[in-house]
Amino acid sequence: MKSAEEIFDILKKKFGDAVLSLDKDTPVEQIISIDPLKINLISKYLRENPELQFDSLMCLSGVDDANGIKVKDAEGNEIIEGGTLSVYYNLHSVSLKHKITLKVSTPRNDPQIESLEKIWKSANWHEREAFDLIGIKFLNHPDLRRILMPYDWDEFTEEISRHPLRKDYKNPEFYQGMKVPY
């Protein structure tokens, strides 16, 4: 059983700059921020270190932070430029019974994060979902396709309607001849 501070200290000692910060002020969850391109190394360490033994990934959530600047594009739609997309990892150790939340942030215009599929198999579909709904690219993922939306969604929609959980998403008018809005 280790607290978030102890885990943060262990990681900071081992990985230095790749571990960015520990967010202690917000209620309920304490979040460790990590470099998006080192997340696979840190996760492997978290799983294999006998003191930590994080053997299961409970949840992986892609989030659109919507912290960029709102601008109007050529057609008058409000879009967000700049800012970040984030992924939150909720880890849990079945044997040691402690929990931790990790966060990585990546720029919105080129979102890239290392995949954790090799470390926890359960990351596979969660990452596909984040790719599908938010549009985050996971590097070294074996099978990065859409999972919930139709595979041919891109063919029928504009750039702004690609990833529905982005905050500036706009419904397409038609998909395969079917009207989408009410």
Binding site: L148, M149, P164, Y169, N171, K179, V180, P181, Y182
Partner: peptide, 9 residues
């Protein structure tokens, strides 16, 4: 009906 981007109405 309102926010269902993937639901046929």
């Amino acid at each position: 009906w309102e926010h269902g981007y993937h639901v046929l109405k």
